[in-house]
Amino acid sequence: MKRGKTGWIRLAVASGATAAGFAALLAGAAFGLQAVTLPRPSDNQLLAARTLHWLTAQNAIKSTAFVGGERVSSICVNATIGPLPAYPNRLHASLLVSGRRRLVETRFASFRLGSTMREEDGPLPTVRAVLAGCPRALGRRIGRFLDDRAPVHAERVSLRGATMLRLAFRQGDSRLLVIVNPRTFAPVAVRIPRLRTGWSYLARAQRRDLIRPELRLSRRLRLIVKEEA
């Protein structure tokens, strides 16, 4: 049987519609299978992931804390460090400046900067970097809670007259409290309850914060530590 032009067009349209319908049906089934079988993260874990997303986009954070009734200001800048004898590749790092003290913190080791560089043992340097809101250190801490799918508790709090969200992370002995802006998800305060420290208040560093003389490294140190901000 011979088909006319209209017949062929009609057949092609019918075939196309059947193909599209068939593929759509399968796609619907595939989507449904994923939606029904796989668990979804909690809304609070998604909030925490957004905070982490905000942090990964930052190069420098300034912070204020009250230690022994005294106000301590810090600035933390993303940096790289290396090569070092134990670490031949350059490492992502945070350069933390509190008063005259300068610290370089990495995932593997921390160093105090003076006229030379000295490795610092123990967890304290990392704790300092987290409390100073160093994007990499704080991001790593939050990321680790999320890696372990630690439950995140969120509640509305008022801070300086504004409504904020307080995210509480807990996994075993490890705890972290972060207050975030509910609109931008930027962390505005951080606290590690186990250490009985007070809150550190965080803000994005401005251009004028980055020209502080303490951030200027000697030529020798600049060969090893490079700021990214």
Partner: peptide
């Protein structure tokens, strides 16, 4: 991990 806990995008990691 996905089978046990589902997906979660962790930025920067």
């Amino acid at each position: 991990t996905v089978a046990d806990q589902g997906y979660l995008l962790i930025p920067g990691r």
